[in-house]
Computed example of a mutant assay.
Amino acid sequence: MQLKTHGRYDYSAITKRPVYDWPGGKRLAVYIGLNLEHFAFGEGLGAELAPGGPQPDVLNYAWRDYGNRVGAWRLLEMFDALDMPVSVLTNSVMYDYAPALMDAHRARGDEIVGHGRTNSERQSVLSEAEEAALIAEATDVLTRAEGVAPRGWLSPWIAESPVTPDLLKAAGYDYTLNWAMDDQPVWMRTAHGPLLSIPYPQEANDIPSIVGRKDGADAFAQIVQENFDEMRAQSVAQPLVMGIALHPYLVGQPFRLRALRRVLQHICAHRDEIWLTRAGDIFDFCQTCDAIPRPE
């Protein structure tokens, strides 16, 4: 029986691959993927704290908006105190809605990653032309605001059409965070050349944990810490990437922030052993690393 396949990459066992080191001889790369998102009022998609009923869903809209007004600023204070770099996964509408927040991330040198226009929509339901226009619009906003084009992309809701990787590569993107199939970067095939898939977590991620599984603050923090400690041990044998996916309206809540701060302090206590970095820096390394095979 021949199953339908995506054709983007081939099967490869992680224990059978070439071994290499990250910069400084490190074996575990760790990055923060901070999602800055804004939502339409009274329509479209959005995570729910509780069933909100008919639109306008003020309960859930205001809950999510807390992240941009309060939670994101508390997280910034924490990242500054811990001296942690951040990859900021940004809806392009954030530049109109909360320009001061985007200015603050630019001032600290954070990487800006494309994250669609808004998380009120999915790009996977669009025609190819409409999806290409969405990517172009979001990219143009980020490029004009930052003075440099974003190199990485995470689709809102991790939603892809069959041609999304092709469209991203054609639009000038170097890497995608959409595919959570590995603990190492993997070069993917597209119609326009290779696109790097950098691991982005779906377990050490506050949306599936807190919204999906209803994990408490301590439970999510424990997931991140256990994941880090285990991957640090595993990385003795193979170089690995650990992403930590965060949303300010979730982990920016005071009681969750306390638990998150404890685990990030634990991670930073090992900063001499790990590569605390950004997703774009991982791409830069992989671009010149011959040990990471490119697709034929």
Rank of each mutant, 00 (worst) to 15 (best):
Q2R: 08
Q2A: 10
L3T: 12
H6W: 08
S12V: 09
A13C: 14
I14Q: 05
I14G: 03
V19K: 15
V19D: 15
D21Q: 15
P23Q: 11
R27L: 15
R27G: 11
G33D: 11
N35R: 03
E37W: 02
F39L: 12
F41H: 04
G42S: 08
G44M: 09
L49A: 07
A50S: 07
G53V: 14
P54R: 12
N68S: 06
R69T: 13
W73R: 10
R74C: 03
D80T: 11
V86I: 03
V86T: 01
T90F: 00
T90M: 04
S92E: 08
V93T: 15
M94A: 14
M94W: 04
Y95F: 08
A98F: 04
L101V: 13
L101S: 10
D103A: 12
H105T: 01
R106P: 04
R108I: 10
R108W: 02
D110S: 08
G116Y: 05
R117H: 12
V125F: 08
A129I: 02
E131D: 10
E131N: 06
A138P: 05
A138C: 10
A138Q: 08
T139E: 06
V141M: 09
V141T: 14
L142R: 08
L142H: 14
R144I: 15
A149E: 08
P150R: 09
G152F: 02
W153K: 02
S155T: 00
P156I: 01
W157A: 00
E160G: 03
S161F: 09
S161T: 10
T164S: 08
D166P: 02
L177H: 00
N178F: 09
W179N: 06
W179I: 04
D182P: 01
V186H: 00
W187S: 09
M188V: 05
H192V: 04
G193A: 08
L195H: 03
S197A: 14
I198N: 03
E203T: 07
A204M: 11
N205Y: 12
P208G: 02
P208A: 01
S209N: 13
D215M: 11
A221D: 08
Q222R: 14
I223C: 14
Q225G: 07
F228L: 13
D229V: 08
R232I: 07
A233L: 13
Q234C: 11
V236W: 12
V236K: 15
L240D: 09
V241F: 00
M242Q: 11
I244A: 10
I244W: 08
A245T: 03
A245F: 03
P248C: 04
Y249C: 04
Y249H: 04
F255K: 02
R256Q: 08
R258V: 10
A259I: 07
R261A: 14
L264K: 13
Q265C: 10
A269Q: 11
R271Y: 14
D272Y: 11
W275E: 09
W275I: 07
W275Q: 09
T277A: 07
R278P: 14
G280S: 15
F283Y: 15
F283D: 14
C286P: 05
Q287I: 05
C289W: 05
I292A: 14
P295W: 05
E296S: 12
E296W: 05
